[in-house]
Amino acid sequence: MTEQGKSCNWALEINDLTVAYNSKPALWDVDLRVPEGVLLAIVGPNGAGKSTLIKATLDLIPRAAGSIRIYGKPYRQARNLVGYVPQRGSVDWDFPTSVLDVTMMGLYGKIGWFKRPGKKERELAMSALEQVGIAHLAHRQISQLSGGQQQRTFLARALVQDAQVYFMDEPFAAVDAVTERAIVNILKELRERGKTVIVVHHDLQTVRDYFDWVALLNVEMVAVGTVYEAFTNDNLRKTYGGRIAGIGAASGAIDVTSTRDSAEYAEVGDAV
C-alpha cells in the first residue's frame, strides 16, 4: 500500500470522538490510531462503548464530536475499504434465507441499488465459504446453523467484501473451540495480506495469543499500543476499575499468571 501524505499512514484514525446517548456519554474524547496490517483487540468492561466505537466509525450512529478517517478519508468515501461483522446476536437467524444468500449480502455494496447478484457474485461467495470451511452448507437454511457456523457465515460475508479494514464485533462470542481456531487463522491470514482487523474482544486470556495490538477502552481510551506495551496490569486496572478485587502482587509486565488474573477481571467486569 502506498502511503500518500501523513494521514494515510493510519488505516484508522479517530480524533476526539465523543458519542452520547441521551446526553450520557458512551465514548468520551477517544483518540485511536491504528497502523495498517495489525490485528487490534478492543477490550473493556460491559458498557465501555466498544460496539459504539465501531458503530460510530461506520456512521451507524451520530457522533457528538470528533473526526474519523479511514485511510485519510471520511467513512462515506471509504465505504468500499471497510468490511463489517456485526454481533451475531444482532440479527434474526430464523430469517428465511440461505447461507449463500447471507454471504452474498457482503457484495450488495459493490452491486449497488436495484441490480441483483449474479453468477459472478455467487462464485465469489462460494469461495469465501470455502475459506471459512462451510462451503458444504451453502444452501442450508440459516436457521439450521450452529453458533459456530453462524459466525463463519458472517465471516465469509465480510471476506467477500474484500476490504482493507475489517471491523468485527465479538466474533469469538459463544463459538466452539474449533471455530475459534478457524477464525483466528483467518484473522492472521488477513493480516498477512496487509489487511487491518479491529476486533471487539471479551476474553482477556487470549488477547496475547491472538492479537498484536490492543486498545483498552472504558468510555475513555485508557491505552492503545502493541500488546507488549499496552496490555499491562496497570492499564487493565485502570480499565476495569476498582471493581477488581484481589489483584494481588501487581507486577509491571504481564506474565502468564497475570494474564490468568486478567481473565478474572473480565468476569468481574461482565458481572457488573
Binding site: 451507524l60 430469517f95 444468500d101 449480502m105 450488495y108 447478484p117
Partner: peptide, 21 residues
C-alpha cells in the same frame, strides 16, 4: 426494484447502513 435492499435491511440493518443502503 428493492427486493435485495429490503432483504438486507430486514435481516441486518447494521450492515445495510454500513454499506450505505
Amino acid at each position: 426494484l428493492f427486493y435485495k435492499e429490503l432483504k438486507l435491511v430486514s435481516f441486518d440493518e447494521a450492515l445495510a447502513g454500513a454499506l450505505g443502503f
